[in-house]
Design a binder for these strands. Sequence first.
RNA 1: GGCGACGUGGCCAAGUGGUUUAAGGCGGAGGUCUGCAAAACCUUUAUUCGGCGGUUCGAAUCCGCCCGUCGCCUCCA
Length: 455
Amino acid sequence: MKIYNSLSRKKEIFEPFDPQRVYMYICGVTVYDHSHLGHALSSIVFDVLYRYLRYKGYSVKKVQNFTDIDDKIINKALQEKTSSEVISEKYIKSFFQSIDGLNVLRSDSHPRATEDMEEIINFIKNLIDKGYAYESSGSVYFNVKKFDDYGKLSGNVHNEEYKSSRVDENHSKKHNNDFALWKISNAGEPFWDSPWSKGRPGWHIECSAMVKKHLGAQIDIHGGGMDLIFPHHENEIAQSECFSSKKPFVKYWMHNGMLRVKGAEMSKSLGNTFSINEALKRFSSDAIRLWILQTHYRTNPLLDLDLIKSTEKSLTRLRLINSELKSKPELKKMNFISFKQRFIESMDDDLNTPKAIATIFDLAKMIKKSSSTHDVSQGLILFRELSNILGLNYKKLTKDKVANDVNINEIELMIEERNQARSDKNWKEADLIRDKLLELGIEITDTTEGTKWKK
RNA sequence: GGCGACGUGGCCAAGUGGUUUAAGGCGGAGGUCUGCAAAACCUUUAUUCGGCGGUUCGAAUCCGCCCGUCGCCUCCA
């Protein structure tokens, strides 16, 4: 299997430190708001990686953290006149609801920064002891100049010229690129005791500490969005490699592309705030997954709801294969192994899910085509097996209640009336009733087993 | 200013030197079915890969230039 490594900027053959086991860490979300479709993209991509590695026989340990203490959470708490704990708790719940809804498997562990504070503080202590970090008026900074490899991931070299647009009120840093490991708290803000001050950890240190604690000093895969390459992951490398003196901290860095939104003005109103939970009310998890996986994970797709809708459409064919097709054991068994090979070949090539999906569609077509002349049971088994790797479960969007304002009995009655009209060959009346039903949002289908309807 | 990505049919999107006169999905067209529809199924839908040069027996795929789009460099999946 080949994986594109952001560090080397090319595809590399995947060989974990331990040939049997894979240790992977995915940067999780900062829980100050509902997760949006961009998070869905990332979650789904690494969920598929997780599923596929297990399919290949690896024993995989996947860890994804929650950043549950940071400025945005504090601000939100202030805004809503509550505590950061209440805020983070609320959005952690929402996050799980979202990824469960997307059929994303839970990671083996979901640690929170606030629960690993001891580990974080010890990590910082160690870096100070080794001379990589320094304390300055209650805060602690990493001294970037002490780490020669700084910039190896992002290509951002020490750049004193570049002045960030950010208004940094902090003048206690030695160098422009030095970053906070520990931040002294202002009055009223949440804090933890430390040798340096009552304060809280900087953003990057939690991941280094949690990787170390939950997975080890060196791991196979570290994933996240491309936007995290700098400074987050660059800084993680600095911290972790200085801490353990082991290189590389991460063997394969994987970064998914960023979901883009049409038109800048839309970003605030519609696009960016389109939460996963909101999307799941309108689309099935399969549709969202297919939409995302039909684009390679390293490209930046454009959010387009019509596209998700069209994906929903393409699923009907697959659902039909999954649920309605029966195999005929009395016929000659058909072999579908070539489809499996194609699928694996695609996935082995840096998770080429668009190609893998094409194989699933081709497989579906072949099953359908051959079902009357051959026993296609093996094809059906394979179809489900491959679908499962992509996390497709073929459950329909549960538009549960057919709306309270629509009376089911009434619908049945109208359908009966229409069928009466049809048997009387009173087409005008029949069509009129059909139109009426359509106005109510009821779509009907005449089949050999009678008239079916759906909302 | 620095780092990087990309431009493939109406739309989305694989392919990155010959098995490709370019997968798959959506949409369109034609057909089967139907009272008509819908759904489903079948068939069909780019001699062509932003433009111009070059390398090569051979290029969408490599090189150069030009045009265009986008991401990151600041919290961010």
